[in-house]
């Protein structure tokens, strides 16, 4: 029933209720489908046959035909009237082409990067963060007894002392200056 050239209705997802045409039959239970985008706002995409509802309309097209070819055939055979839509204007056609170009370029570039690196890197990062968090909590608890982690405490202690030493002389003269005024 669902072969190349069959016009179908999508029944699932955000494109539900929209017409599309089968362009290619993939592995068992899956086909490639397109609106075309400029005509019915259905992207060219892989689709499960269970999510398609066939209509009695069939058109002769090549396997894997492009959107422009399909639109040309639609015009010849007067399919737009049957689908209840009008032939797309040039602006709509160009917009659809640009969208597909963007999708094509995006698909090529980012896919290899996340596939290779992040799965290996991200997991250790998360673990490291969690470990740090766990480590930080015990540090706070240990500061109260003040004796167990000697090396770790010395480094942070020095820094606040410097800051304190800088601040204290500044405050001190002010107080001295104020006191005489009150007197």
């Amino acid at each position: 029933m669902i072969d190349v050239g069959r016009i179908c209705v999508k029944t699932a997802g955000r494109e539900a209720g929209k017409f599309c045409i089968v362009v290619e039959v993939l592995e068992e239970g899956f086909v490639t489908v397109t609106g075309p985008l400029a005509v019915t706002h259905v992207k060219r995409r892989r689709c499960n046959i269970d999510h398609l509802e066939p209509t009695p309309e069939v058109i002769k097209i090549k396997k894997g035909a492009s959107d422009d070819e399909i639109i040309g055939i639609y015009k010849h055979e007067g399919i737009f009237k049957k689908l209840g839509s009008e032939p797309p204007s040039e602006k709509e056609l160009e917009a659809a082409r640009e969208k597909e170009r963007k999708r094509a370029s995006e698909k090529k570039k980012p896919k290899p990067k996340p596939a290779e690196q992040p799965p290996e890197e991200k997991k250790p990062e998360h673990r490291a963060e969690k470990k740090e968090k766990h480590e930080k909590k015990p540090e706070h608890k240990e500061k109260a007894p003040k004796k167990k982690p000697e090396h770790k405490e010395k480094a942070p202690k020095k820094k606040p002392e410097k800051h304190a030493s800088k601040k204290k002389p500044e405050k001190a003269p002010k107080k001295k200056a104020k006191k005489p005024k009150h007197k």
């Binding site: 209705v9 699932a12 997802g13």
Partner: peptide
């Protein structure tokens, strides 16, 4: 983000689309 989304469940919306077709 689907026709009848937030109004019908997925199964019922699918059947209405089929019957309309």
């Amino acid at each position: 983000d689907r026709p009848y989304g937030g109004n019908m469940c997925s199964a019922c919306s699918r059947e209405t689309v089929k019957s309309k077709n």
